[in-house]
Amino acid sequence: MVEIVSAGLIGLSLGAQYALLALGFTLIFGIIGVVNFAHGGFYLLGGYVAYACVSMAGLPYPVAVLAAALATAALGYLFELLLLERVIDDHLSTLILTLGFSLVITTGIVLVFGPDAPLFQFPVQGVVRFLGIIVPLANIIVFAICFAAIGVAYALIYRTNFGRSLRALSEDRAVAEALGIRARLMFPLAFALATGLAGMTGALVTPILSLTPHAGEPVLAASFLVVILGGLGSLGGATLAAFLVGMIEAYAAVYLGGSKGALMLFVLVLIVLLVRPTGLYGRTARGA
């Protein structure tokens, strides 16, 4: 019983992280038509920016998380505006460019911080005991912040004019532009929102998991998995799939063990894609 509940809590917390990552990933695909291979790189960078702020500049952790989100958003904005925008209509070029940028981030981090994992710990240690269930306080805090961030992201996308314009561009770019939405102004902003979310997730999660120059790769893989399962371009699908994947991962790890758990996840995704090739909430993919 205790095992079931604590695995569920871990699953929820994993799901919230995946949701934040996948929301940005699917947003970029839906709006700009770009599969962002640098997504894991921005997550990684967020972790290192937060680490640098805390251990080198001596800033409090919450400020470090904010700084990480802003820094990755700013870098994402510039990357889209100055580089990606030049090849935006060529899918192969955007793929190579984001993949290359991911390598640049990783290599840059190795150059600056070295290849070894730095010691980056969550500032709040302690555990919460409740009816025999033990949950680290850090996980609860991260879960709460991730959950709140998902709420803010949703509000931004569904309740503001900025979000309405983004969704309109994603739904039908030609009509949106014919009505006066300037895609070239919105694209870098959308990209910044997505990379900022990834960077913030990195700043929140790497102190709990681990911070190494290669921490971005599994994150990119997880984002892919979640977004494909949810249906490329669908925000609701990505959120649902993120929690689904988090739960399966947590329960499989507890009851099946590490490698069997991962296998089970991929088998499940394979089955879903056989039955519904466009994912849970998918639509047919199209270029931007």
Partner: peptide
């Protein structure tokens, strides 16, 4: 001038 900017200037197309 782009499609969107021209729309703001009042030149609007339908499809």
């Amino acid at each position: 001038v782009s499609l969107a900017k021209r729309a703001k200037l009042g030149v609007v197309r339908t499809f």
